[in-house]
């Protein structure tokens, strides 16, 4: 564990708390892509099933339980509790176009051709693109509530912080995880446009609006 990874994980944790806060206080899931949230559930379940048979640490265990349960809870909020506030007609990204290629990539690129390892690779690839329906929705509506942009910023910061973590681990432990690194770089790159608008507008006190 190093500080980059710790703050990355905390940022990930914060992003979910911000999202929950947004849904609970506005009593609405407007502006949130159900598809992206459903993809995150898939990612967490596929990757963290090892919590039943591999013990890493209490930290690792609790985070996994939190990520799985909170992501399922968010789906419940969107699909049941605040269902009327979710508008599927603007959440139109075809998620199957992401899942299919990720299955194929996982079958080709994995550290061992076993079920848990292929599942792990699949979750890494899927996580790297899971935000696309959300970003697509943002692009489509051209604007976002400020709280939603804070959610995305925290999520992007989590990914960005994992990069110095890998550099640090390479020098301190000699560890390189090429699958995680390549997928992680792709994932972080997807946030570049968003961060540009976030820094130049939202953090200057303006509304998140994309140029028409």
């Amino acid at each position: 564990m190093n500080l980059f990874r710790l703050f990355g994980d905390l940022s990930h944790l914060a992003s979910i708390l911000i999202l929950l806060h947004k849904i609970q206080t506005t009593r609405s899931c407007r502006g949130i892509s159900f598809k992206t949230q459903a993809l995150y559930v898939t990612v967490f379940v596929a990757r963290y099933l090892d919590l039943f048979y591999d013990w890493v640490s209490l930290y690792n265990f609790s985070m996994k339980v939190f990520f799985i349960s909170s992501s399922i809870y968010i789906l419940y909020l969107m699909k049941v509790r605040f269902r009327p506030t979710h508008d599927p007609s603007i959440d139109t990204f075809r998620a199957e176009y992401l899942v299919g290629p990720c299955v194929v990539l996982a079958l080709i690129f994995n550290y061992k051709f076993t079920f848990p390892e292929v599942l792990w690779s699949f979750s890494i690839f899927l996580e790297s693109v899971a935000i696309l329906p959300q970003l697509f929705m943002l692009q489509r509506t051209g604007e976002a509530e400020t709280i939603t942009t804070h959610y995305l910023a925290a999520l992007g910061a989590y990914r960005a912080l994992y990069i110095p973590n890998w550099i640090y681990r390479y020098f301190s432990e000699g560890v390189v995880d090429p699958i995680a690194v390549i997928a992680g770089l792709v994932q972080t790159a997807l946030y570049v446009d968003f961060f540009y608008v976030y820094f130049t507008k939202v953090l200057q006190g303006q509304k998140f609006e994309l140029p028409a």
Binding site: D50, K64, Y111, K112, V175, P178
Partner: peptide, 10 residues
């Protein structure tokens, strides 16, 4: 140089 397996990152 070891790879990321077993996986200790979240």
């Amino acid at each position: 140089v070891s790879t990321g397996s077993p996986h200790d990152e979240l």
